[in-house]
Design a binder for these strands. Structure first.
Lengths: 358, 358
DNA sequence: CTGAAAGCGCTTACAG
DNA sequence: CTGAAAGCGCTTACAG
């Protein structure tokens, strides 16, 4: 029978006290050496380091943070809708990178679109005394975080602003991004443009709808509520919505899909119906490989790296003591023509056909 | 000037002592009520709950775990190659779900393919006294975790087995999955089949190569080293490799891309060269939307949900005291024909043309 | 049923 | 330069 790691009786982890005993110094001297504080003679410091090495001593951060005057745990919390969503996973990675440079780790969690889960996760993170919080809010009331904020936990909101709470936030220019997408379709000769959107309770969905309406208005096109489909929460729902829209009389000639999952559904529907070369499409958010589809899918891209970096930067600035009023950073989008958005509509002019407009 | 949350002087968080003082009971009684221990009179319990409510008291988990005999922090660590890789992000989400059901949160981190970073992250997690560790190992020696394992931290490896360490692991049947992919191509009339793979230091890359060789051997086809391209670490490198392979004399008629990023590169290259309808392709790992490409891409899928669930389940079983010998779970793959893998090769028979073989 | 004392592994605030 | 005492916010192990 081999000695199996998992089954052997646990061997106690050495403490500072053990290191002190072995090296024949006081606890405080070990603490000084471990924390690289100056003012320990080379002789003692060497003995301590040797003893620590010999015992394979590793400091207990949870104990030190309890006693430390700043109480820092070198851990931050990240509340997302879903850690596996590509946009959010990319955000997570950026935040992790900024945190890592400071020796800070990230506890991330998913709350889907469940308000209660958002609060539960926030409570769980606070109970573990995270140094700060980054939140992509789901609920419509973040006032429950006010006490925690007053207790000194900095918090930054990302992608969506907080409600009933004054805090920093980093957002995408959803309205102008959507406006650009729809203006792009209009400039290619479309006037009947459908809007597909997520639940109107989500601020980004509303802002993108607002950009859509604004682009139509600027072009003197009356919005037709029959072309606006909200509360679509999955690719499948978007796929069905497209089939319905295209089967109706006076069907749209172009579609603006205001979120990545919805874009997938639209692409599926158009391919299914064999309409991918006749119905124009612009999608919001990045999707891998869509440039290889035929036609490629024209997308409005968010600056995920910029969002993640700015969010983490602000949080750590607050942790470093920045007490200026809360700020709101808004990052622009980029429209990438890939084919589907350049399909000409019935009102195309010579300019739009020759690409004189974009 | 409004009162701004972030700038107001931090208000100290209430402690158990504060609750005890306000309710006029001892610290221990508050502890009993907070931890739902029996044996407190309704009268006192009520007073304590009211005081806690009034002060907005929330327990400090980091302090309680320090003192608790089991020392549990209700936190586990997850070491990944990249939290934003779709496969790993999906794994992360599954593990989070299992953990959440037990009130446990997850600290995840990315180490890319950097051994030093793997060790640093492990150290950072151990310093925070995570209750357990889930590791997708990058390095080729996990013996550095042996002491930690003996100290009582359970650990489970996922996707790749640990080296120089006896521990549980949950893997994909890489070899048989790759064998099935290549056999599929052979049955469709291909004999010159290229293999594209990641760094040979990664166990999954080697296992998939082994499955490739095995399938060829079983079909009596001699392996041609000119068709085997290893150490490809990005889509771009795979794209270049395909261009080279197809430009060479006696070029392959089919390609097996043994990892998701590489599959993307192959698809790009084939479309670029206009060969997507003549060169067969099977890819390993899922990729969104590839079924909408023309042709759709035939894939070998891993059971990500199964991997995540099994990994987390084992970890928590160990945390619950299971001391049986370490186990190795291997989950099967599924081949999904989507078009690219069914392109017929020069040795196609009537059976392969009619789909009598899959 | 209730609580006073000790201590988890550290850092703080002093004193020498 | 070095260390003894106190204490971070809790739970443990007792005693009443």
């Amino acid at each position: 029978m081999t000695t199996h790691g998992q089954t052997a009786a646990p061997r106690a982890r050495p403490t500072m006290r053990d290191v002190a005993a072995l090296s024949g110094v006081s606890l405080k001297t070990v603490s000084r050496v471990v924390n690289l504080e100056p003012g320990v003679s080379d002789d003692l410091a060497d003995r301590v380091r040797q003893a620590a090495e010999q015992l394979d001593y590793h400091p207990n951060l949870t104990a030190s943070s309890l006693r430390r005057s700043d109480g820092k745990t070198q851990t931050i919390g990240l509340i997302l809708e879903d850690v596996s969503n590509p946009f959010e996973a990319a955000l997570h990675r950026r935040i992790e990178e900024v945190a890592r440079a400071r020796g800070v780790v990230v506890i991330a969690g998913s709350v889907d679109e469940d308000e209660a889960r958002e609060r539960d996760l926030a409570t769980a993170l606070v109970a573990r005394r995270v140094d700060g919080l980054i939140v992509m809010p789901t609920g419509h009331d973040q006032s429950y975080l006010a006490k925690e904020q007053r207790s000194g936990t900095p918090m930054v909101f990302v992608d969506r602003p907080p409600t009933f709470l004054d805090a920093d936030c980093v957002l995408t220019a959803n309205e102008s991004g959507a406006r650009a997408a729809v203006a792009h379709l209009i400039s290619h000769g479309h006037r009947r443009i459908a809007f597909l959107g997520d639940q109107p309770s989500i601020s980004t969905a509303i802002e993108r709808l607002s950009g859509y309406r604004d682009a139509l208005e600027r072009a003197g096109i009356a919005a037709d509520s029959a072309l606006i489909r909200l509360s679509l929460t999955s690719s499948d729902q978007a796929e069905i919505a497209v089939a319905e829209l295209l089967a109706a009389p006076d069907a749209p000639t172009a579609i603006f899909a205001s979120q990545n999952l919805l874009t997938i559904g639209v692409v599926r529907a158009l391919h299914q119906l064999g309409r991918q070369h006749s119905i124009a499409l612009v999608g919001f958010d990045d999707l891998p490989l869509v440039d290889l589809l035929n036609p490629g899918v024209t997308l409005v891209l968010q600056d995920v790296t910029g969002l993640g970096t700015a969010t983490a930067d602000i949080l750590f600035r607050r942790l470093d003591g920045d007490t200026r009023p809360s700020e709101r950073i808004i990052l622009p989008t980029t429209l990438i023509p890939k084919g589907s958005g350049e399909i000409l509509g019935p009102f195309a002019t010579i300019e739009s056909a020759t690409g004189a407009v974009s």
